[in-house]
């Protein structure tokens, strides 16, 4: 008797489908209400799957393929806000511009940036870096000098290594003084791919 009733109940319950549509609707409602502190999304690219996070102010974080999504979400929850949702509407302008960049049709980005995940000298270095144009490169020591501390080459290196918004803040355009490619959070192959995309070519890249 008991099994019949509970069996009928269990059998009478339709399975829960994919919640993608519900999540999208939720993110839109949260954004309208002003409680979507961070919207996140993904993008496939020649250097792997990228993670994009944006606050109401602008792009706050780009995660490269080498970074774990769980850690990126935990980092944002701890340092910005735990009110984080997948939000196509919030990240679409950035995804579109990145797509255009990878397709070769875009040389600079116009989406607003939210710099809150970096500060002090690191932020100064990164803000200098935004001025390095597409297809050109600089070195760690030049960048330190431009940020006003020519001897802080290592600190400049740290600023780049902790760049929260790679690609848009083009830390891939910074090479070692000897011309070798140097490190990259997304791996030096990813750095070479980006430089090749921008038409930086030749021996310098091969020697990395």
């Amino acid at each position: 008797m008991g099994t019949t009733l509970e069996g009928a109940l269990t059998a009478g319950l339709p399975p829960v489908g994919d919640l993608a549509h519900e999540k999208e609707r939720l993110a839109a409602a949260a954004e309208d209400e002003g409680i979507l502190d961070v919207g996140v999304g993904h993008l496939d690219s020649p250097i792997g799957r990228l993670f994009v996070a944006a606050t109401e102010e602008g792009v706050v974080r780009i995660g490269l393929a080498t970074e774990s999504e769980d850690e990126l979400l935990a980092e944002l929850a701890a340092s910005v806000s735990p009110r984080i949702l997948g939000a196509p509407r919030r990240v679409d302008p950035t995804r579109r511009q990145l797509d255009e960049y990878f397709g070769g049709g875009r040389r600079s980005f116009s989406v607003p940036l939210d710099w809150r995940l970096t500060r002090g000298f690191r932020r100064e270095v990164l803000e200098e870096l935004v001025a390095v144009p597409y297809g050109e490169t600089t070195t760690y020591s030049e960048l330190a000098a431009e940020a006003g501390r020519p001897r802080a080459v290592r600190a400049a290196g740290t600023a780049l290594a902790t760049n929260p918004i790679p690609i848009i803040v083009p830390c891939h355009r910074v090479l070692r003084s000897d011309g070798s490619v140097g490190g990259y959070r997304g791996g030096s192959d990813a750095k070479r791919t980006l430089l090749a995309l921008e038409g930086e070519s030749g021996t310098m890249l091969a020697s990395g």
């Binding site: 319950l13 339709p14 829960v16 919640l19 519900e22 999540k23 939720l26 961070v38 996140v40 769980d70 979400l73 935990a74 944002l76 929850a77 701890a78 340092s79 806000s81 735990p82 009110r83 984080i84 949702l85 997948g86």
Partner: peptide
């Protein structure tokens, strides 16, 4: 934890518990 806020993204919570909440509401 920073300032006592939860250190889990709400997105993670929805992924983890969304199906259970939906099943509850359907029933």
């Amino acid at each position: 934890m920073l300032g006592g806020m939860p250190d889990v993204a709400f997105e993670t919570l929805v992924d983890r518990h969304g199906p259970v909440v939906m099943r509850f509401l359907i029933a």
